[in-house]
Design a protein around this nucleic acid. Structure first.
Lengths: 228, 228
DNA sequence: CGGGTTAATATGTATATACATAATTACCGT
DNA sequence: ACGGTAATTATGTATATACATATTAACCCG
């Protein structure tokens, strides 16, 4: 006896997992399911909405509800503030600004950020530490037009954290790669050149344009966990 | 003039981004917003539901709706089927099974998978190629109890792909790290030992227990892209 | 048989109403 | 001032009804 949309969602999910309706196959319509389960059509709609958002089914107006042909397999990452990440490991966080200057955005970075070459930007290089050991080497370009005037003091609160509190992003992209440590990273992270690094790059956009392009390098032993 | 829940959601999001209600602050209640916008309370509820699911606000019965104290910053990864990943790059996919045998699960893998040591499992080693070049070296443990009998032929369709179509997971975890290539990976991927590898590990659970624990190693140049 | 047009229909949404439930507030007693 | 209890209330949900919209199916004509 179904008590509400959540139970209905779970029951439908179980039936889908049991292959009652195969991938790509048509699930009975809302009216039919409402009749079968003895609930309102709106309740069925609510349950299917949740399944659609989970990627289990695909729905289109008038076209019916189909089991996703290939189950969408999504993993989620909660992007951590580095200080919180370090402290969550029970370690003491600290950071030091290695370099900071207002510059004209070079062509490569400009293209990456979708800004004109020569746009005023802040170039920032930061080392984040955990218990005094190098945790991450961060280099970033900040779109000067997105920052308040005067530019905040990133020696006090790292840009990594300041941006979260003051310039939330609304879109962007992020990527991971394994790369060999170059001279700058090796020096900052106190490791040998060529050591494998987890390199995380991220571009974020605010409501009025690009905010920042950041590159984070973590030494070996760093693992990024996503949930399924 | 708000036309529906989607426009309302966008308007509320813009107001939140503009700090009309600060992080942690209380958003006006549904009845108030319904009155202010001239829509039904259910419409407000629908818009706020979407914002809550996006992590922009937090809602509890009777407690009101608050702007998330720290904007949740989530990134999403669509987990690709390797063949599709290769083909999406315009390359020709192929794979070869380097090793496959039914074994007793050793203690380490058993612990990782939440199974008893000695449980029957399939050990599988696969090399995935793109245009004939090594693309990924995959080693995996498959819980024999989760597989049909007889065990499928992974030489024809890789386990990576077979599982998607036949054993969808319902939960699990996934992680990324940069590691130096060991002898087995170096040999399979035709690179020098010590070369940085993007190492992806994933454990998936089905409705009736653990399915597989897989470790994927990609040579340099492989970039995993997430969307924000 | 194929293509174009029209009608039908399944999902998508908005609203009003009623009820459920968890959290907050108010009140009272010690 | 603090703790406990009861009342209030803001979110959560279910239902019925009406309307919107995109897609599918039916029909007609060349």
């Amino acid at each position: 006896m179904i008590r509400g949309w959540e139970e209905l969602r779970a029951d439908l999910l179980a039936r889908i997992r049991a292959r009652e309706w195969p991938p790509g196959g048509l699930v009975p319509g809302e009216e039919q399911l409402a009749h079968d389960y003895g609930v309102a059509r709106a309740t069925v709609n609510r349950a299917l909405q949740a399944l659609a958002e989970a990627g289990v089914v695909e729905r289109r107006k008038r076209a019916g509800t189909r089991v996703a042909a290939l189950p969408v397999r999504k993993a989620r990452l909660d992007i951590p503030v580095i200080r919180r990440e370090v402290e969550a490991r029970g370690q003491v966080y600290s950071h030091v600004v290695l370099a900071q200057q207002v510059v004209a955005l070079p062509a490569g970075a400009a293209a990456r950020m979708g800004l004109a070459a020569g746009s005023p930007a802040v170039w920032l290089e930061t080392l984040h530490r955990a218990d005094g050991q190098p945790f991450a080497h961060e280099t970033r370009w900040l779109n000067l037009a997105a920052l308040p005037d005067p530019v905040p003091d990133f020696g006090t609160v790292s840009a990594n954290e300041w941006l979260v509190a003051n310039l939330p992003f609304v879109s962007g992209d992020m990527s991971f790669a394994a790369e060999a440590a170059g001279p700058a990273e090796a020096r900052a992270l106190e490791i040998a050149e060529g050591t494998p690094l987890m390199v995380i790059e991220r571009l974020t956009q605010g409501l009025s344009g690009p905010i920042t392009f950041v590159r984070l390098c973590h030494p070996p032993g760093h693992r990024v966990v996503l949930s399924l």
